[in-house]
Design a protein around this nucleic acid. Structure first.
Length: 212
DNA sequence: CTCCCGATAT
DNA sequence: ATATCAGGAG
């Protein structure tokens, strides 16, 4: 009960500070969102947007990605890092989209998770932003770090963190929650040098409280 | 737990 | 030059 109240207060303050928090990836359809989210692994959303601006002019359908030479696709996404791995994921995932789903991106968690390069974080992003299906809470590095620091969760693994968050975050906030934490994680609660003095959550933050 | 990798900040 | 940033697979 105590924890649920704390989460509510955290969300309330974050909403006030970041009223326009939302997904930072640019996309115009489910396929573009899927590709952009796969590319966003270990890469900033800003860089992904730079790459996809060109990428989506060249590759317009799942078939385009599936039939591209792997080396060429890899070069086209090079600057997002891990490019050979990601090129394989994208090509193979799109091959599956073409063969099993008529070139469309599936609408269920189960089907999405079968695609290479897609785990719960990516699946949650695609489902919620492309189809309005809220199955869970995407846990990326920001959500993971802030949830642990503030003391919202005890686990350190993404899957377990997601489960814990689903217990305490009101369902109507599941969609906005990760974007609120990301905004704060990028601006104040930085990974290495968090700006605690200027943080409006310090009176609620376990990490801050335990070292001051 | 290790590997996959470039870009930007310092 | 070197530290920091950031998901998924095997």
């Amino acid at each position: 009960m105590e924890l649920k109240e704390k989460v509510k207060e955290v969300i309330k303050r974050l909403k006030k500070a970041y009223p326009s928090a939302r997904i930072a990836l640019n996309f115009q359809n489910p396929l573009q969102l899927l590709i952009a989210t796969i590319l966003s692994a270990q890469c900033t959303d800003e860089r992904v947007n730079q790459v996809t601006a060109e990428l989506f002019k060249k590759y317009r359908t799942a078939k385009d990605f599936a039939s591209a030479p792997i080396e060429e696709l890899a070069l086209d996404i090079k600057s997002t890092g891990f490019f050979q791995q990601k090129a394989k994921y994208i090509k193979e995932a799109c091959r599956i989209l073409v063969e099993k789903y008529g070139g469309e991106v599936p609408r269920t968690m189960e089907e999405l998770l079968e695609l290479p390069g897609v785990a719960r974080k990516t699946a949650n992003i695609v489902l919620s932003n492309a189809y309005g299906v809220i199955e869970g809470i995407p846990v990326d590095t920001h959500v993971s770090r802030l949830a642990q620091r503030i003391g919202l969760v005890k686990s350190k693994q993404a899957e377990k963190i997601e489960k814990e968050l689903m217990e305490i975050v009101p369902r109507e906030d599941w969609f906005i929650f990760p974007y609120l934490l990301q905004a704060h994680g990028r601006k104040i609660c930085l990974a290495k040098k968090p700006k605690c003095p200027e943080c409006f959550l310090k009176d609620l933050c376990d990490a801050y409280l335990s070292q001051n």
